Amino acid sequence: MTRVRVNGVDLYYEERGNGVPILGIHGTPSSAVLWEDAAVELAKHGRCITYDRRGFHRSAPPVSFDRIDLLEHVDDAAALLASLHAGPAVVIGRSTGGEIALGFAHHFPDKVKALVLLEPALFTIDPDAAAWASELRRRVLMKSGADPSSAAETVVRDALGDETWESFPDELKAMFSGTSPAVLAEMRGHGLDLSEDPLDLGEDELAGIRRPTLIISAEDSPAACRLVNARLSGALPYTETVFVPGGHLINPAHPAVLAFIDRITARPSSWEQS
């Protein structure tokens, strides 16, 4: 297993291909395991770097974190790129990973070449989406009070549906369930989508993220995800939007993503100086 120590934690990561760096940030609960097939395709278009975020799966410490903050994930992403001498990168974030990608672009704009946001979990941008996330937080806390290992399953069932959860092989269900301590640590921390105080980027802060951005929505996702994307498409300066079939688990190597990366790679670097 390939690991790098950053900010006091050992992160598991995988690297494929050459060229423009492409950083993949997974959602909650999840792991880079779910990005393996996509990473193979992305590596045909650049230097693809995927990793398990702190606390998740192969980056989980022997003793679970009590809390995990958004800024820790942001700093980890920056340190990972720095340790690999990679950047600026096309940053692809799915769900909570998309929220982290936005936080990363806000705090480290010089490390971002472009953004691909696969239904980012910035629920605070829309009142109805924020209410949906607050209700999900309540259900997760209620169910995990009796069984802490159920936290991840509760989130997956809400985001992807009961049928999708039941369709997963036992080993994948076990992987998800094993991330429950990290899910709860994020909920106890600051700034994550199911934290008590999630990230709230205002109009000026979003307008300051001056990077070309591809925003993808799925037809069968929770309505809250589409509400977020509609708001973001009007708030971020340079956006393209795409609707794809299926649910919230959007393919990071969807043809629209690959075409976007190729266009970004071919463009002059004037975007990075804006």
Score class of each variant (00 low, 15 high):
9 V>L: 04
19 G>C: 09
19 G>Q: 08
23 L>P: 07
26 H>Q: 12
28 T>H: 05
29 P>S: 07
32 A>D: 10
32 A>F: 07
33 V>H: 14
34 L>Y: 14
35 W>P: 02
35 W>F: 15
39 A>S: 12
40 V>I: 11
41 E>W: 12
42 L>H: 08
48 C>V: 11
56 F>C: 06
62 P>A: 13
64 S>P: 13
64 S>Q: 09
67 R>I: 00
84 L>Q: 09
86 A>W: 05
89 A>T: 10
92 I>H: 07
94 R>E: 02
97 G>S: 10
99 E>Q: 14
101 A>C: 05
101 A>I: 06
101 A>S: 12
106 H>F: 12
112 V>K: 03
128 D>V: 08
129 A>S: 12
138 R>C: 11
142 M>N: 07
143 K>Y: 11
147 D>S: 13
163 E>N: 11
166 E>H: 09
167 S>D: 02
168 F>Y: 15
175 M>D: 01
181 P>Q: 04
188 R>F: 09
193 D>V: 05
199 L>A: 12
202 G>L: 05
204 D>A: 15
207 A>K: 13
214 L>S: 06
219 E>S: 11
228 V>I: 14
229 N>I: 04
232 L>I: 06
238 Y>D: 04
243 F>G: 07
243 F>N: 14
245 P>Q: 07
251 N>Y: 06
262 D>R: 01
266 A>R: 13
